[in-house]
């Protein structure tokens, strides 16, 4: 088994979060097209959005999105600047830290917001 170093772990997580986000995107657009059919349809969908399981999933998704977005920015930075290439390990750790911090704030906010 090849050792999983910084860049490789970030890559694996990027792919996993990417797939998860697309899965949610499919569900989200599907449910949205139902919601737009009128108030009754909207409220029916909202009920499912309110279940604890769904809300936990949504919080997790926030983590995924944050990581995917920040890591994506890191990759773009790397492909366009030599500096980011040379500092890639540092930037991977920064991505984790920033994504983690934003996740904590966002998760608290989300949970409270829709309670």
């Amino acid at each position: 088994m090849y050792k999983i170093k910084e860049g490789m772990l970030a890559w694996i997580l990027h792919k996993i979060t990417g797939i998860a986000i697309v899965a949610f995107l499919i569900f989200h657009i599907w449910s949205m097209s139902k919601m737009s059919k009128g108030p009754e349809a909207f409220n029916a969908v909202i009920e499912t959005y309110k279940t604890p399981l769904f809300r936990a999933g949504e919080v997790l998704l926030l983590g995924g999105v944050l990581f995917h977005a920040l890591n994506g920015m890191r990759l773009i930075l790397g492909e366009f600047t030599a500096w980011a290439m040379k500092q890639h390990k540092l930037l991977v750790y920064l991505t984790y830290i920033l994504a983690g911090a934003l996740f904590l704030v966002g998760a608290w906010f989300m949970w409270r917001a829709e309670g």
Binding site: Y2, K5, E6, G7, M8, W11, H14, L75, G78, E79, H88
Partner: peptide
Amino acid sequence: CHSIFNCTD
């Protein structure tokens, strides 16, 4: 290439 950096390492 997905900028995995294994090659560089």
